[in-house]
Design a protein around this nucleic acid. Structure first.
Length: 427
RNA sequence: GGGCAGGUUCCAGAGCGGCCAAAUGGGGCGGACUGUAAAUCCGCUGACUACGUCUUCAUAGGUUCGAAUCCUAUCCUGCCCA
C-alpha cells in the first residue's frame, strides 16, 4: 500500500492536487507542514499533522517541520471569527523552541538517513526580506482578486469583524514559505489541515508563476466530534502533548472517554495499527460495547506514542483504582506512597492542615482550594449532588470536613461529577 | 472626512424608564438512566457575610425618586458615500 492509499483508508485525506500521488511514487519527495507557535507546547489538534509527517517518513520520504516564527507574528485568519491577539517576540521564540523540542521526539532527525527529518523556522528567511522587496518580488505575482476569492478570506469579508490588512497578507506570506522551501530545499509537497487549503494553493501558484515549477499538496480533514463540537477540549481546557500541562493520566482519560462513533474513526487516524487489526477491534467492540475495548485500545496506542509505555501503564493503573466499584475501600487501604503514585496525574490542590483540624465546611473548602471558582458554584454543585469526598457523596452544603476525613492523615480525594478527580493535600 | 446601523451576561440574540441579574436558543456544568458511551429526561449557569446585599448591559459624565433602556462626549465595529 503506498502512502496515499494508506492515508486514504485511514480517512486522513480531504483534498489533493492532481499528480500528488504520482510524484510520491516517482521519487523520494520532501514535504512540509507548518505549525503555529501559539503556545509553548503542541496540543492534540496538532497530532494529525504530526502523524502525517510520521507516515510520510515511514514511507521513505523526507519530512520538514516548519515552525511559523514569522507567520505566527501575523496570525492566520482562515475560518476564524476574529483577529488573533498578537504575540510578542519573546513569547514567540519561546514557543518556537518548545514546539521544536516536541517535534524532535516524534520524527527521526538522524542526519545519516537520506530522509532525515528537518526543522525550519520561517522567521529565518523572512527577517531578511524587506517589505518593499516582498511586495515587488512576490506580491506582484498574485492578484488581490485571487486572494479574495478564497473561502477563508471571503468568510471574513462577509463577517462582522472585518479583517485587517495584516491578516489578509497571511496567505501570501505562507505561500512564500512554500516557494522558499521549494527553491531552497527542493520541497515539492505541502500538507496540512483542510482549513489550510487556500493558503497552500497560493503557495503552489506562487511556485508556478515565480519559479515555473510544479508543486503538490494534500490536506487532511479537520477532526470533529460526531456531535459537531470541538475536538481536543475538556473541562480543564486544551489537551496538551506536554506532560507538564496535561498529565499522562488526563491524556489517557481524554481518549478513553471518546464516544463509540468517534472512536472508530479516531483509531484509524491516531494509531498506527493496521487495517485488519483495526477491523477486528471494531468488530469485537461492537459485539460488546460495554467493555469499551475500542476506547481502551485507542487510549493505549495514543498515550504510549506520546508519553511512552511506562506513563501509559501508570495511567491505566490510576484509572482502574479511581473508577473501580470498590474505590472507597481501596483508597483506605493504600499507603501514602501508593496513593501518591496513583494520584500522580490527578490535579492537585492544597489546604492548610490547621484549617481542617478546626473543621471546614465543604463549600469553603471547594472554593478556597480552587477546585471550583466560587462558593456559589460550590454550593450549587453540592446541592445538585455533584460532589463526592473520598468517593462518598457530599451530604449537603453544611457538611464539615475535618482531620478524621483525611486519607493517610494527609489527603482528600474530591470528585466532581463522574469523571473529574482532584487530590487535596494538607500542608 | 460625511451618512447610516450597531456595541447586552460564554456565544447568538431579546429588552428600549421601574415588574431586569436581564426573555429565548446554543454551549457549558451537574443529576437520573447506562458502559467513565450515545440518545433521552431533569436541574443549574454574576458574586457574597444568601428569603437579603453588592457589582454588571462598550467607556466617562448627566437627566430622573429610579436607567441596559433618555441626553452628552469618547472609543470600537459594520455598511454606504467622498
Amino acid at each position: 500500500m503506498n502512502l496515499i492509499e494508506e492515508l486514504r483508508w485511514r480517512g486522513m485525506i480531504q483534498d489533493m492536487m492532481p499528480g500528488t500521488e504520482e510524484q510520491l511514487l516517482k521519487e523520494m519527495t520532501s514535504a512540509y507542514i507548518g505549525f503555529d507557535p501559539t503556545a509553548e507546547s503542541l496540543h492534540i489538534g496538532s497530532l494529525v499533522p504530526i502523524l502525517l509527517l510520521v507516515h510520510l517518513q515511514k514511507a521513505g520520504h523526507k519530512p520538514f517541520a516548519l515552525v511559523g516564527g514569522a507567520t505566527g507574528m501575523v496570525g492566520d485568519p482562515s475560518f476564524k471569527a476574529e483577529e488573533r491577539k498578537m504575540l510578542d517576540l519573546d513569547t514567540l521564540s519561546k514557543n518556537v523552541a518548545g514546539i521544536r523540542a516536541q517535534l524532535e521526539s516524534f520524527l527521526d532527525f538522524d542526519p545519516a538517513k537520506p530522509n532525515a527529518a528537518e526543522m525550519v523556522n520561517n522567521f529565518d528567511w523572512f527577517q531578511h526580506i524587506s517589505f518593499l522587496d516582498f511586495i515587488r518580488d512576490t506580491g506582484k505575482h498574485i492578484t488581490v482578486n485571487y486572494m479574495m476569492s478564497k473561502d477563508s478570506v471571503r468568510k471574513r469579508l462577509e463577517g462582522e469583524n472585518g479583517m485587517s490588512f495584516t491578516e489578509f497578507t497571511y496567505q501570501l506570506i505562507q505561500g512564500y514559505d512554500f516557494y522558499h522551501l521549494y527553491t531552497a530545499k527542493n520541497c515539492k509537497l505541502q500538507m496540512g489541515g483542510s482549513d489550510q487549503w487556500g493558503n497552500i494553493v497560493t503557495g503552489t501558484e506562487l511556485i508556478r508563476r515565480k519559479a515555473g515549477g510544479e508543486a503538490f499538496a494534500f490536506t487532511c480533514p479537520l477532526i470533529k466530534k460526531a456531535d459537531g463540537t470541538k475536538f481536543g477540549k475538556t473541562e480543564q481546557g486544551t489537551v496538551w502533548l506536554d506532560a507538564k500541562r496535561t498529565s499522562p493520566y488526563m491524556f489517557y482519560q481524554f481518549w478513553f472517554n471518546t464516544t463509540d462513533v468517534d472512536a472508530e474513526s479516531y483509531i484509524k487516524i491516531f494509531t498506527f495499527l493496521g487495517q485488519e487489526e483495526i477491523d477486528a477491534i471494531i468488530a469485537e467492540h461492537r459485539a460488546d460495547a460495554g467493555r469499551r475495548i475500542l476506547q481502551r485500545r485507542l487510549a493505549q496506542e495514543v498515550t504510549t506514542f506520546i508519553h511512552g509505555k511506562e506513563n501509559y501503564e501508570f495511567a491505566v493503573e490510576a484509572s482502574s483504582i479511581l473508577f473501580n466499584n470498590n474505590t472507597a475501600a481501596i483508597l483506605a487501604s493504600l499507603s501514602e506512597d501508593q496513593l501518591l503514585d496513583v494520584m500522580n496525574g490527578v490535579p492537585q490542590h492544597e489546604v492548610a492542615a490547621s484549617d481542617l483540624e478546626a473543621g471546614k465546611d465543604i463549600v469553603t473548602l471547594l472554593a478556597e482550594t480552587g477546585i471550583l471558582p466560587s462558593k456559589s458554584e460550590a454550593r450549587k454543585l453540592v446541592q445538585g449532588g455533584g460532589v463526592s469526598v473520598n468517593k462518598k457523596k457530599a451530604t449537603g452544603i453544611d457538611q464539615v470536613i475535618s482531620t478524621p476525613d483525611l486519607l493517610n492523615n494527609k489527603y482528600l480525594l474530591i470528585q466532581k461529577g463522574k469523571t473529574n478527580y482532584y487530590l487535596v493535600k494538607t500542608v
